[in-house]
Design a protein around this nucleic acid. Structure first.
Lengths: 201, 201
DNA sequence: TAGATTGTTAATCGATTAACAATC
DNA sequence: TAGATTGTTAATCGATTAACAATC
């Protein structure tokens, strides 16, 4: 296994990658100071992050945009594909399913699940909404171990219990609630409330 | 002004608050170890965070749930109301507008804006969708300085430019793109891609 | 050459954990 | 009383910044 990458570093590298995607057709080189000023962070932090990706720059010029972009993609394993399901086809689940081009980042959202009969069978951005009753079967068939959970908070714990029973190992939880899961299951909390409160600071 | 609270601390405190909301009717006391084990963090960190909120516990019992919940609400200024607009009435903007009871946390989403005529005039969870052409006027009328931005990435920079011209000071950006803004404007990046990549670790 | 920018080390800062005395 | 849990200090760990020699 690769050296562990902290969440904060993943965060910054994806932001650098974002900048490079815009820059790639305009400039051949980009400097650490340019990246740093766009993100309002320290330029030596940018250089350190880039060095961590194994990319070397050119004094007086900066970093080759194409090379740096590839270096980040390599370090974040964009090529390493992972299949996931989204549970909950409300606005949030739908937004996540359609979000950007996840495929580019190595995440394949293969299916959406919901309990609402009105939604079942519909297709969103090429992804079919299945009945939640089919979840267990498809998880097993397709060897899924990671779920994006976008159900209402009242339903979240009971769905989580089902997911645990299906041997899911990682849950990305968008509901404002805590999930009780065994030791060997990881819950990533997407804490929207916290995001809101930061705005008030 | 209050002592600054780090983003990580805000994050944890909102998660504690979440736990307390469930616990409040079941138990009178909760221990730092119980909270810590639900979140898989260290119990002394929980005690430190709680002490920071100015709440004292009772040896052998733990913390009074009601008191602790209030202490967190106080520290995070839930009572201190802030008005915001959401720009972009797609699935994500809609989800954010309807998300939980933001009002409980002191965030009032007052209006949604979109450029799509089909959406304008509709009402979502009691919140009206206005034409983006009305944004400037309403920002000035209602003294808004904070915007939640949920537009497609291609539109994000040009909307951001308009927001800057309207004297907006803080933008919560959900698009996978970097916004170029002046020094005195803050962009909070909600980095969904980074969230996805964490799942792959 | 002079100057801009990298690459990297050491210093600093901040956050988490360990440990344990105090307390109910 | 004995035991569980807090409150808090010191130790550790990790992340960021400052500084500057190396380099093109």
């Amino acid at each position: 296994m690769e050296e562990a990458i902290s969440d904060k570093l993943i965060d910054r590298l994806t932001l650098y990658h974002c900048i490079l995607s815009y820059t790639v057709n305009a400039n051949e080189y980009v400097s650490s100071a340019e990246i740093a000023s766009l993100l309002k962070i320290d330029d030596s932090l940018v250089r350190k992050d880039i060095a961590f990706c194994g990319i070397q720059g050119l004094p007086k010029h900066g970093y080759n945009v194409v090379e740096l972009k590839k270096g980040i993609e390599e370090k974040l394993s964009f090529h390493n594909k992972k299949d996931v399901f989204v549970v909950g086809a409300g606005n949030l689940g739908t937004a996540l399913t359609k979000y950007a081009d996840f495929k580019d980042y190595g995440i394949n959202v293969l299916a959406l699940f919901d309990s609402n009969p009105d939604k079942i069978g519909k297709t969103l951005a090429g992804i079919t909404v299945f009945s939640i009753t089919k979840l267990k079967n498809l998880v097993e068939q397709m060897n899924i171990d990671t779920i994006i959970l976008a159900v209402p908070p009242q339903a979240a714990q009971s769905v989580a219990d089902e997911l645990v029973a299906m041997n899911i190992k990682s849950i990305w939880n968008f509901s404002p609630c805590i999930l009780r899961v065994p030791e060997n299951v990881t819950v990533h909390y997407e804490n929207i409330i916290s995001g809101f409160l930061r705005l008030k600071k």
